[in-house]
């Protein structure tokens, strides 16, 4: 538990002192969102219809942008190796890394959601569903992305490869989350989607760190 708190605190501190790494994906997210009305045309009805998909794809891309750096600096300065060699559990360390990644990339995206929804003329029910869906799913994105980040940490340029490895794993949450927003806009019940997304979140919370820890063991084993 000490390792968990110490790791999260250190990550937050490091990124607080160098905020650009945290801010860049958020700026990217807003820029991508605002490009769509320019490309498609400013007609509110059309934008409203495709808003959930646009916001979600932009959020996935923004998350993946920050994914590559999850373990990279720790790998390069050797602290990742020290963690693996120490008697501390790698599983807990991975969870700590995922939590700090979520606090620095997932949570700010959730907070940006109302702005994105405003730009695309979503109505109130849609805004709430969109924010809730991202709140439920963004930890899953960090958990699954961690696997890709750990697998590619030993490579000089892992960024694009992470996207290829992780994107297929994001399909279920993307389908369910956009369906949830559309259901909310149509005025129907969304609780079933909430249960599904929570089930996926807890499932990946149990399983994904195992794979990530195994991948870290491989990367530091050379």
């Amino acid at each position: 538990m000490n390792l968990f708190i110490a790791s999260v605190r250190r990550d937050l501190l490091v990124h607080f002192r160098h905020p650009s790494e945290v801010l860049n994906p958020l700026v990217f997210f807003v820029v991508v969102i605002s490009l769509f009305p320019l490309g498609i045309g400013p007609e509110p009805g059309q934008l409203k219809a495709i808003a959930p998909g646009i916001v979600w794809v932009a959020a996935l891309l923004a998350t993946l942008m920050s994914m590559d750096s999850m373990f990279r600096s720790d790998f390069e300065d050797g602290s990742l190796e020290q963690i693996v060699l120490s008697e501390q559990s790698t599983f807990i360390f991975v969870l700590a890394k995922v939590v700090s990644h979520w606090l620095l990339s997932g949570l700010p995206l959730v907070l940006l959601m109302p702005l994105a929804a405003l730009l695309l003329f979503l109505d109130e029910a849609g805004v709430w569903a969109l924010t809730l869906s991202l709140l439920l799913v963004s930890p899953t994105l960090s958990l699954l992305g961690g696997i890709g980040a750990a697998l590619t940490v030993g490579l000089p340029r892992g960024g694009l490869l992470v996207t290829i490895l992780v994107m297929p794993l994001y399909v279920p949450v993307l389908v369910l989350a956009t369906a949830m927003v559309q259901a909310a806009e149509a005025g129907s019940d969304t609780i079933g989607y909430v249960y599904w997304l929570l089930a996926i979140l807890f499932g990946s919370m149990c399983l994904a760190p195992i794979a990530t820890a195994a991948a870290i063991n491989v990367a530091t084993d050379q």
Binding site: I147, L151, L165, L169, A208, A211, A214, A215, V218, A219
Partner: peptide
């Protein structure tokens, strides 16, 4: 690494 990815 590839084996882990295949299992995931």
């Amino acid at each position: 690494a590839c084996a882990i990815l295949a299992l995931v």
